[in-house]
Write a protein that binds this DNA or RNA. Structure first.
Lengths: 214, 214
DNA sequence: ATATATCCGGAACAAGGTTCCGTTTGCAAG
DNA sequence: CTTGCAAACGGAACCTTGTTCCGGATATAT
């Protein structure tokens, strides 16, 4: 009659580090299965939502359920791992875009990438609001990974004079997330348009501020 | 592999009317059991959250699970019925308070009543964000019942010169709900304080506007 | 080549939602 | 006051899904 959180030794999900350290030895087959599971879970979550049965994910990954629970002691651990994985991918996209495009363009492209991530995650909001403490650390992780990524892009674009310089990355992430929330109604297309508008607002601000100040 | 919503004849949950019409005959024992179920569900949801087992509710109501499902074909129908029931109670409190107190006082008291309703409903947010279409109609019902109730109070208080007159009831409901959301951290006590502040803001506005205009 | 710690698969268990059906009962007509 | 029966009741049984367990397979160090 209450909470049970023995939580022996969860290797992922507790640390706030971007990725796992190679603790001792991870057998090659284990690593392969973990990757397959993350990939399968990502696909299944995208189509059936995060409440898809564990068996379905296991089957899609070509492993038994026992293997799932060996690496992800709780169903929520798998969900968290997938979310963190996607956040990492989104954050990692920032330097790549920065290397391939003009600063302002890189910023705009990354924001769209971010919107796509949010809209694709049906059930993210539900998980966050579910009250399940397993998801408590997710928001912090989001900020920790995404804010620096966006900040770098913002600073580069501001230095190039392409956007205004007084924007808090955290504010922008929050605003874009609000606009993109699936619960808000309006499909992914609308979300992309609204966020594009937001980014254009940053650009407009640059010229306005330049005019006003000089 | 998809949605199944045959939905034969759900008597509650589809109509937007405050309460059920007496369709044909409702046997006395049935009415009694429905009431007992709503009461039991309200109590159980308050203590164990909305994901409490149906069996537990049935037992607390002193009926078999078959009886639960006879009146509430899906578990979510019971949840929706309880929510609507509490919304009705909250809305009905408005005229009662208005009859017993000064207009400004009635408004303040009702807002507290509303906050208590929001904070008590652990899992309301989760349900709303769950993506389950069964809950889609809830927000509309909330507005339909609560807005007129609050509007009456606001108009009375404004007519008495106790609060400013330019407040949209919908805005106020939304703001108070945001402040009271359990997910916001801070207990019910904080929520009450913050909303009291909000109401005081309305009062301040009354004198300010009076000064400025005359 | 061998030992062994680790990993794998899937049957088995537990819990909760939902269905089914034999029995009981409110109630209105006679 | 009977009687007939549609409606309602209860709870066992069923299905789905999360989680545990353990005998067998296997990667890897020696």
């Amino acid at each position: 009659m209450g909470e049970k959180t023995p939580n022996g030794k969860t290797d992922q999900g507790d640390s706030l580090e971007p990725r796992d350290r190679a603790d001792r030895h991870v057998r090659a087959d284990a690593r392969r299965n973990i990757d397959a599971l993350l990939r399968a879970a990502m696909a299944v979550f995208a189509t059936s939502g995060v409440e898809a049965p564990v068996r379905e994910i296991a089957e899609k990954a070509g492993v038994g359920v026992g293997t799932v629970y060996r690496h992800f002691p709780q169903r929520s651990d798998l969900i968290v791992a997938v979310f963190r994985n996607e956040v990492d991918a989104c954050a990692d996209a920032a330097p790549i875009l920065a290397g391939k495009h003009e600063p302002g363009e890189a910023l705009a492209l990354w924001m769209q990438r971010y919107v796509d991530f949010i809209t694709a995650k049906r059930g993210l909001a539900a998980a966050l609001y579910s009250g399940n403490p397993a998801f408590d650390t997710l928001p912090a992780y989001f900020n920790q990974r995404l804010r620096p990524a966006l900040q770098t892009l913002l600073e580069a674009a501001a230095a190039a004079g392409e956007v205004r310089a007084d924007i808090e990355p955290g504010d922008l992430l929050g605003a874009a997330a609000s606009l993109a929330m699936p619960a808000h109604g309006g499909g992914p297309a609308q979300a992309r348009r609204m966020v594009a508008l937001l980014v254009d607002g940053l650009r407009y601000g640059a010229s306005t501020l330049a005019d006003t100040r000089s």
